[in-house]
Amino acid sequence: MVDKKKIFRIGIDKISLYNFSIKTNKEFQKLIDNRGNCVKEKTIITDELFSIINSYTLFQEGEELQENIFNKIVFNPNKLLTGDNICNTTPDQLPKVIEKLTKLLKEKGVEIDFSEAKIADIEINLNVPVDFNDYSEVFTLFYKQLKKSKLISEISDSEKISEFKIDESYFSRLSRSVTFKIYSKDREKGLNFKVTRLEYYLESLAYKYAMNKYNLDSSLKDLIANPKVIEDIFRERVKKDFIIKSLKYIENNVKPVLEREYLAFKKANALAKMTGRKEERNVYKYLEKFWIFDYSFLIELIEKHNIKNKGREIKRVLKKYIQHDNLKKLNYLLETIFPH
């Protein structure tokens, strides 16, 4: 039985560690590469719950032989704890995870010392109890801010909603060492309740930089000793990458386009009336070609530009466009991400 309290919180999904010692007398799969003055030997230890790469390099520098050893282990903490990756693991649970992982490895003939381990990369995510499709316009608003990044999901530059591409998941590389993804976790796992996941993947440089802002380093010890830091990192990034920019985008792009097209429609009808041509009757139908986003934006236009028929027009909007309630959805996300 999945514990919903552990699902809907900021936590760790997957983590990679390096800078640990490893000993084993067992033979595992090895890859050997001899090139020029360099010999690379890579031992790979894989399991359903983890994967380890032990890399040994011997190379010649001048007249002397040099060697380099690098170890990396990748695992999902919650799979080790409960067998699933739906829930998130918090940093204060990591000692228990490391204890279990160490014991599991010892049973396989591998001794590891994680006391000086550092974090190579980490996935930090938040699950929210919403339907991905129902919130697709809010997520589209987020991704409209990322046109300068290498955005895999194609979202049109147009303000016409009909030209937007709504995918089953959104993925973007925000920088060389940070990626962000939004996707339906309930669809992926076949859950009987709605879960949408917002997920940051921080590679080594990004994680070090984030921790340094809190006067911490990338050691496993610092993460365990400061369990709330990943919540701070996640919230700070979401605020900087999406929230502030999205609110500005609404004020600087969405609303002005609606107002411009609303007034253009009204002006065209006034000219048609003056010249005896046929008038178009439904300004809201016309605005559907653009991004309404929220019905309240239409009400703002009515209150500003149509005082004479205000009451009647507002009733029309409420009757037909009340389902465009994306501000409410955006506010719910904000309250979930940034609880009081």
Rank of each mutant, 00 (worst) to 15 (best):
Y284K: 05
E199F: 04
K239M: 14
K221D: 10
F234Y: 12
L271D: 07
V229Q: 01
L220Y: 03
R235Q: 15
R176N: 15
L174H: 08
I182H: 00
D186K: 10
S177L: 13
A268L: 14
K255Q: 08
Y262E: 00
L174F: 13
K189F: 08
K267W: 09
F234R: 03
D232S: 14
G190W: 06
R187F: 11
T196L: 08
D241A: 11
A264P: 04
A272M: 10
S175G: 06
Y214Q: 09
F180I: 07
K213S: 14
S218Y: 13
K185V: 06
E188C: 05
K194F: 07
N252K: 13
D241K: 06
A225C: 08
L191H: 04
P256K: 04
L174R: 07
K240F: 11
R173L: 15
E188K: 11
L263P: 04
L258T: 00
M211T: 03
V283S: 00
N253H: 10
V257G: 02
I250Q: 00
L202E: 00
R176Q: 14
S219M: 05
L202Q: 01
Y286D: 00
S218E: 15
E259Y: 03
E251A: 06
A268E: 15
A268V: 05
K240N: 14
K245Q: 06
K221V: 11
F193G: 02
L223D: 01
R237S: 13
A270F: 10
I243Q: 01
F193V: 07
R281F: 08
E279L: 10
T179L: 12
S175W: 10
N269G: 02
S172A: 15
K185W: 08
L220N: 01
Y262S: 00
I244W: 02
I233P: 01
D217Q: 10
E236N: 15
A206E: 03
L205H: 11
R173M: 15
I243V: 15
E280P: 02
N212P: 04
T275Y: 10
I224P: 01
E203Y: 12
K285L: 13
D186F: 05
S175V: 08
S184F: 09
D232G: 05
K285D: 05
D232W: 08
K285R: 15
A270L: 14
V229Y: 03
I250F: 02
V238E: 04
A270G: 12
K248E: 10
N282H: 14
A272Y: 11
S218D: 15
K267Q: 13
K278T: 12
K273N: 08
Y214R: 07
N226F: 04
A270T: 09
R235L: 04
E203T: 07
T275M: 13
R237N: 14
L247Q: 12
S219R: 06
F180W: 09
L216P: 02
V257Q: 04
I182A: 00
D217Y: 13
R197K: 11
N212Y: 11
L247T: 06
E199Y: 06
R277C: 04
Y200D: 01
K278G: 07
Y249I: 05
K240C: 06
G190E: 04
N269M: 09
I224E: 03
A272E: 03
K273Q: 12
L198H: 04
K208A: 06
R235H: 08
E251R: 09
R187W: 09
S219V: 07
G276Y: 07
E279N: 08
A272Q: 05
Y249W: 12
T196H: 07
V195G: 00
Y201A: 11
R260C: 09
E188R: 10
G276E: 02
L191P: 02
